[in-house]
């Protein structure tokens, strides 16, 4: 998700092609080609420019609806036949599609493994989605920044936070038997909800800083983050 204004100019984008299974968009104003996953202009007058990224989540509608009761939801286009829209488990179905790209495939993980990727400073790290679902929350340090990644009880919603508050590192674990995912920090025993906010205990009301996460296939993540680390148990 990107800001669509570059150098003060509002750009209007179109789907314009595909580059090794990640789509290219073209802007009407300059005709430049942009890579979707990196937000970078790869060809044309704006080559080398980067779109500013907009923080966003991938969460279930059920969870989002509870958090954002005043929110609005994109409607389908009535001129598009309903069957043209793919089923909701599109990314799982796509995992059956072979990967045929120009770059060498990295063997660390099978290419279509769904990973949750984060970039902190100059370092990137990928967490296999299945591992994350099993271990949620995962606490980790990426290039010296302590982070926590978690998947909601719906098994789909993903969020990441810096687990540090005024220089104090927090260790998190999941509260047992709670209907929604609730985290407890080992330091104060405060309870934290899925928005990264402490809802009870000594730290109640405090908010963790978000970390942008991207759900992607391993081959694509590795392609655009060649020096990425991979989370291992």
């Amino acid at each position: 998700m990107w800001e669509s204004v570059v150098n003060g100019q509002q750009l209007h984008f179109h789907l314009a092609g595909i580059n090794n299974q990640n789509f290219i968009m073209r802007d009407e104003e300059t005709g430049s080609w942009w890579q979707q996953v990196s937000g970078e202009a790869i060809l044309g007058p704006l080559k080398g420019q980067k779109l500013r990224s907009v923080f966003h989540d991938e969460v279930t509608f059920g969870l989002w609806k509870k958090e954002q009761q005043q929110g609005r939801v994109l409607k389908p286009d009535p001129t598009v036949p309903a069957k043209s829209y793919p089923p909701a488990n599109w990314d799982e179905r796509m995992s059956q599609v072979p990967v045929n790209i120009a770059q060498n495939l990295d063997k660390t993980l099978p290419p279509r493994t769904l990973v949750v990727g984060i970039t902190v400073g100059t370092a990137s790290k990928a967490y296999p989605f299945e591992t994350l679902v099993k271990q949620s929350p995962i606490i980790d340090d990426v290039s010296g920044v302590p982070i926590v990644l978690m998947v909601g009880r719906d098994g789909k919603s993903v969020r990441g936070f810096q687990r540090i508050l005024e220089g104090r590192k927090l260790e998190f674990f999941a509260k047992k038997d709670s209907q929604e995912l609730v985290l407890l920090d080992a330091e104060t025993g405060s309870e934290w909800d899925f928005t990264g906010k402490a809802i009870s205990g000594p730290l109640a009301g405090r908010q963790l800083k978000t970390v942008p996460v991207l759900k992607d296939y391993w081959f694509d993540w590795k392609n655009y983050h060649p020096t990425t680390f991979v989370y291992e148990l």
């Binding site: 991938e58 969460v59 509608f61 954002q68 609005r72 994109l74 909701a88 719906d154 919603s157």
Partner: peptide
């Protein structure tokens, strides 16, 4: 949109929008 469907969710200056991944 089904409750279990994933959405891309963005929030800015008090406005929240969800883009269903299916769409």
């Amino acid at each position: 949109v089904d409750d279990g469907d994933v959405v891309l969710a963005v929030q800015n200056h008090g406005e929240a929008v969800a883009y269903p991944v299916r769409l």
